[in-house]
Amino acid sequence: MGNPQIGIEIIDKSLTDNHYWRKLVTMFALVGMRFEIHCWNEETEEIKAASIYGEVKTSDWEFGTIIEGMLDEKFIEMIYHTIKPQDTEIHNKMTPFFSIFFENGFSSEHYGTEFHILSAPTEDLNFTALLEEIREYAIINKY
């Protein structure tokens, strides 16, 4: 059997920073890989910010906009320095972007409160340690 798929749901609504989100996303962001950022149409500032790193993709998502592009150092630097949004009434947002998808099967969804990892590194000690740290704040499922 191959590496397990992992689902992570941040359930602790009291997290005041996005330290774990930034660490996890940058762990899977690799230069040269394709990405998509999904935003709701009314999130004009977020669409504008994402458009710096890619272009609007034609889609049939009536209520949203998808920006696609190639990961580069500037994109990864932007992710690493993303500040946790203050708008947390509905979701305790970790990122201003509704969803981020990477070509390697990693995704950050529902404003960074859910992660899906299709191919988790089983021998990566940094990843294993990070999962242990996150366990206090999240539900982690392996499939």
Rank of each mutant, 00 (worst) to 15 (best):
M1R: 14
M1V: 15
Q5F: 02
G7K: 14
I8C: 02
I8L: 01
I10V: 14
I10N: 08
I11A: 07
I11F: 09
D12K: 09
D12E: 07
D12Q: 09
S14R: 11
L15I: 12
L15G: 04
T16D: 11
T16K: 13
H19R: 15
H19T: 13
Y20H: 15
W21S: 06
R22H: 09
K23M: 06
L24P: 03
L24Y: 03
L24N: 02
V25R: 00
V25Y: 04
T26D: 03
M27S: 06
F28R: 05
F28N: 04
A29Y: 06
L30N: 14
L30F: 14
V31D: 15
G32I: 00
R34F: 05
E36P: 00
I37H: 05
H38C: 06
H38D: 02
C39F: 07
N41G: 01
E42A: 05
E43Q: 04
E43L: 02
E43K: 06
I47R: 05
A49S: 13
A49T: 12
I52N: 09
Y53P: 11
E55T: 15
E55D: 14
V56Y: 10
T58F: 13
S59T: 12
W61M: 09
W61G: 00
G64V: 02
T65A: 04
I66Q: 00
I67D: 04
M70I: 13
L71M: 07
L71K: 01
K74D: 15
F75T: 09
F75L: 14
F75Q: 12
M78L: 10
H81P: 04
I83Y: 09
I83S: 11
I83K: 12
P85M: 05
Q86I: 12
Q86D: 12
Q86R: 08
D87L: 03
T88W: 07
H91W: 13
K93F: 00
K93G: 00
M94G: 01
T95A: 00
T95Y: 03
P96Q: 08
F98H: 05
F98A: 00
S99C: 13
S99W: 07
I100Q: 04
F101I: 01
F101S: 06
F101K: 08
F101N: 09
E103L: 08
N104E: 06
G105N: 03
S107D: 07
S107E: 10
S107G: 04
S108I: 10
S108R: 00
E109R: 06
E109G: 10
Y111G: 02
G112Q: 00
H116A: 13
I117A: 03
S119P: 05
A120S: 14
A120M: 09
P121R: 07
T122V: 13
T122C: 04
L125A: 15
L125T: 15
T128Y: 05
A129M: 08
L130H: 06
L131H: 05
L131Y: 00
E133N: 15
R135P: 02
R135K: 11
E136F: 02
I140L: 01
Y143Q: 13
